[in-house]
Amino acid sequence: MIIKFILNKKEVSIDVDPMKRLLDILREDFGLTGTKESCGEGECGACTVLLDGKSVTSCLVNAVHIDGKEVMTSEGIAKEPIGKLLIDCFDEPNAVQCGFCFPGFLVTSYHYVKTDGEKNLDKIKKSLSGNICRCTGYQKIFESVMLACERKPLMNANERE
């Protein structure tokens, strides 16, 4: 089956088994290895990407589901202004440990900071509850996202979108 979709703001098309997981398409067919497989059953969030602006676990999404849609991975988000802001905010308190879950956290927190962005710990905890991290105890992750919410208003208006 030939599917067309927008990947990190570029139009792409691929001839693929309709049941192939989005996770495998990204990693094997496009070499985007920032999206990680950890549990393979939608529990841990390491493979989180944005599908039409919503965060989804790409291990549970098949090729047929992405035809005509827009996919953003951690590699794409890292180039966006809010993505860059978040990377700096994760880096500053040394929040990253093994880093295997972090591309997933970057995607989910990007979604939160972009669409909501309120510096509210309870809301942040809830928005990140689909991502598991085994190293950090989450506290520095909260700290980083809070920091990004605090700094977002300081960005140029066109960069906040």
């Binding site: 990693r27 290895t33 920032g34 991975t73 880096d91 929040a95 990253v96 880093g99 591309p103």
Partner: peptide, 22 residues
């Protein structure tokens, strides 16, 4: 001194290679 980690940014943008990325 809390210097920043040498590997944090590449881990965040997905360029740091884990086993299955090779």
């Amino acid at each position: 001194k809390s210097i920043r980690k040498i590997d944090a940014i590449p881990k965040l943008n997905g360029s740091w290679k884990f086993l299955d990325d090779y």
